[in-house]
């Protein structure tokens, strides 16, 4: 029952997003623009790209991702859909996990799209793809959990546009640092390092906390 509800919610969000493509278009455009601008700001042919390339990549992911995560619960405000969802038999954790899943898939799609753009502009490519995918999965899940939970928290605030980034970005910093460090190693062909354990622990702890707290946040 729980899984079915999760899947229904996730499918609905993805379906809606595919119809309107609002967040998707904004996100893709934004990530391309950032990568382009940074290519002008820093000379992408230098060797230093190996050092700050991963930082640039994850910053792009974080900002482009925020566009997707912001919409997550905000899309339910129109026509009072959020009330209808909360009043339905769908539990708050199911609602949250469903949305997080949809967000994760959208974010991951944007990231996969950005990757070749990044490789093209900066002439860098990981020697082995699998570790990069792993860090992308772990890092993106953490960003998704944080973004979705705070999207739920700020959805009814009048200062939502201001409060969401204020709350979300500091929480994302540890994740981004870990992801950036691992990605630097991966791009250089080295072992991934301690960061992986940190990300896994972070993912588990924050997912648990988010699922526990989401009902408190949604039901007054």
């Amino acid at each position: 029952m729980f899984l079915r509800q999760v899947w229904t919610i996730a499918a609905k969000d993805l379906h809606s997003e595919l119809r309107t493509k609002e967040a998707w278009n904004a996100s893709i455009a934004f990530s391309v623009v950032i990568l382009l601008l940074f290519a002008f700001a820093f000379d992408p042919s230098s060797d230093q790209i190996r050092e700050f390339g991963s930082g640039l990549l994850w910053m792009t992911y974080a900002f482009a991702g925020a566009l997707v995560l912001n919409r997550s619960f905000a899309r339910e405000l129109q026509n009072d859909c959020l009330d209808a969802l909360i009043a339905s038999p769908v539990s708050s954790p199911a609602l949250f996990v469903g949305k997080a899943l949809a967000n994760f898939m959208m974010l991951f799609a944007v990231e996969l799209f950005s990757l070749p753009v990044f490789g093209l502009f900066y002439n860098t490519w990981p020697p082995r793809f699998a570790p990069l995918l792993l860090v992308m999965v772990l890092g993106t899940w953490a960003l998704t959990i944080i973004g979705t939970l705070f999207s739920a928290l700020t959805v009814n605030l009048r200062l939502r546009e201001l409060m969401l980034p204020t709350l979300v970005y500091p929480m994302m910093i540890p994740v981004l640092i870990a992801a950036m460090t691992i990605t630097t190693n991966v791009l250089a062909g080295n072992a991934m390092g301690f960061g992986v354990r940190f990300l896994v622990a972070f993912d588990i702890i924050f997912t648990m906390l988010a699922v526990v707290f989401v009902d408190t946040v949604l039901v007054g």
């Binding site: 809606s16 129109q78 026509n79 009072d80 009330d83």
Partner: peptide, 15 residues
Amino acid sequence: RIGVLGHGIALYDEL
């Protein structure tokens, strides 16, 4: 077992 009809129509415009 509850049905709710409130102020908002609670429908998705894009569906």
